[in-house]
Every structure is written in structure tokens, then in C-alpha cells.
Amino acid sequence: MTFIDVTRPGTKQKSGNLHIISKTIREIEDIFMRLGFEVAEGPEVEDEWHNFDALNVPKNHPARDMQDTFWIKGVDKTVLRTHTSGVQNRAMMAKKNPPIRVIAPGRVFRNENTDATHEAQFHQCEGLMVGESISMANLKGILLEFLKNFFDNDEVNLRLRPGYFPFVEPGMEVDVTCTTCGGNDAVCNVCKGSGWIEVLGAGMVHPHVLASAGIDSKKYQGFAFGMGIERLIMLRYGVDDIRDFYDGDIPFIKQF
């Protein structure tokens, strides 16, 4: 009988990989689709109205001047979107009537100098849910479901704190249990010993935002939330330099 050496390495097959940003967005899409959310998409170059006015960002808000936002030359009032929230307005306009459950993942831009934690471009996923009685308790319910699934851990908890974003009122920051130390390490370098990590911004949709999409804010209410994809990945895998995401380095892409 022929001797077959089973310890020899298997013949290498061609293999590739999705970028971790795409993988993570897919994961987020799949969780939210199971929760009844649709995935929407919108332009990366936005008009000022969709990027700011429709979202209740005041005319004199610092975000509107040259400091934080890239403006397009030769076209009036046009920017590289600073968030994917413009998609929310379009989704509401398209639906006309609640219920609305939609998430909008995509590339966004900030006019910031690049370093290990800042890139002029990064990815966000924002979400929106509107109905007759969609409350802050529901916001907490949906986000908790999402975070448990995303971190694949039933023990994960979340914590809401007051925050401020013009398009929501009340607005809040969302912290998740530190998955590195579970809150049991006073010198944990991920949560700095607090046991919590900030992962999302959220809030109840401002009536002006509903109104600018033609939705009756007396009858309908809802919540919105947003998260930075690169930040989630950096927390999850310990990637320490955001610039690595855009280098196209196969040894980087291969690992995830």
C-alpha cells in the first residue's frame, strides 16, 4: 500500500479576502436587516441642504465653515458629506410614511490633518427608526440587541449618557461594556479602567429633521444613531493606526 504522509501541508489554493471595513459593514447590515432595517445608500458629494440644513445644523455652526468640511470648487454650496445622515432625509422622503427602519453605511469626509487616529476619510453607519411610538427605551432595546450580536456576547451591556448632536433631542453618547477587560481591570488600556467604551452617538430625531423630510412630527417620532466603522474595528482587533486601512497592503487585508 502507498504510504500517504498526512502531515504534509495541503496544497495551497488561491485565496483572497474582503477588506475588514466591508466585512464589518456587512456584519452590521446583516444584524440590522434581521431587526427589520433596510440598507440605504446616497451620494458622497452632498449639497449643503442635505448635509446641514435638513439635519438642523445651525447656519452659524462651526462645522459649516472651512475648518471641518471639504467644499467643492466651482459648485455652489456643495460638500463632501461629513456624515451619512443625508441618506436619512432621502430615505424618509422616499418612504413618505412611517414605519421607517433604515441604516446608511458609507464613506464620509472631514477636513482634518491625518494621524494615527484621524483620517480625512472614514466610514460610518447611521441608522434611523421612525413610527408612532418609537421611544428612547426602544432605542436602548435595538442598540442592545445590535451590540450583543456584534460583539457576539450576551453579557454585553450599554450605557447612555447625555450628548449633543444638532439633529437629535435628546442626544446621547452610547458606551458599551469593555470587551477587553469586562470592566475588571483598573489599568485596561482600552477602557482606561472605566469598564466602558464609547461606540455610538444617538438620540431622538429632532422634530425639525422630521419636518424637513415632510413627516408630521406631531404624529411620528423616532430615534437615530451613528457609529464609526474604523473605530469599531480598531477597538475589536487592536488596530492602532487608522491609515493602515487605506494602504492596500495584502498582509493587512489578509488577516481579518
Binding site: 436587516m33 427589520g36 427608526m129 413610527g131 418609537i134 421611544s135 432595546g141
Partner: peptide, 13 residues
């Protein structure tokens, strides 16, 4: 606040 899943408005995405 309790975490409560919404009871209204499920539409197949």
C-alpha cells in the same frame, strides 16, 4: 431606562 424592542412597524426589509 429599560431596553425594549419596538412592538410596531415591522416591514420585511
Amino acid at each position: 431606562l429599560d431596553a425594549v424592542l419596538p412592538s410596531e412597524g415591522f416591514v420585511l426589509p
